[in-house]
């Protein structure tokens, strides 16, 4: 699962601002460049909309092929009630999964922050 709005939706919003608010403020000779950038964003928007989060470990943790969203909800519910606490090997597996989900999320949205924390 990814944050909302999705990367694709953010790209669409940024592209709207670029094309309709910023481009008109540019000198006429540079407006085509701005529209090109908007087009690049549109392409990336479509590609990002099909990207998937790494959820193989989640399926492994539960030994289930349920839908990723349902598994993630189940994981969150279990963490809330401490279902993995003091259980080997479930607890370290759950922690490792938390790290993987978080790092994967930041790789998409803020790789600079990961790097600033010594991660990549």
């Amino acid at each position: 699962m990814r944050d909302l709005p999705s990367a694709a939706a953010l790209l669409a919003l940024g592209r709207e601002v670029l094309a309709h608010e910023l481009a008109p403020l540019l000198p006429e000779e540079r407006r085509p460049d701005a529209l090109l950038i908007a087009r690049c964003m549109a392409i990336a928007e479509h590609e990002m909309a099909t990207e998937e989060a790494p959820l193989r470990e989640l399926r492994s943790l539960y030994g289930s092929d349920e839908e990723p969203e349902e598994l993630l909800r189940r994981f969150a519910r279990d963490l809330r009630i401490g279902a993995f606490e003091d259980r080997e090997p479930a607890e370290p597996a759950a922690r490792a999964l938390l790290w993987r989900l978080t790092v994967a999320r930041l790789r998409r949205s803020n790789p600079q922050f990961l790097a600033a924390n010594g991660l990549r």
């Binding site: 944050d3 709005p5 939706a9 938390l98 978080t102 924390n117």
Partner: peptide, 18 residues
């Protein structure tokens, strides 16, 4: 756009919690 991007900062907080 600024508000939309603010939601992405939740991931930074999650890293810090870990």
């Amino acid at each position: 756009l600024d508000l939309a991007l603010t939601g992405r900062r939740a991931g930074e907080c999650e890293l810090e919690i870990l």
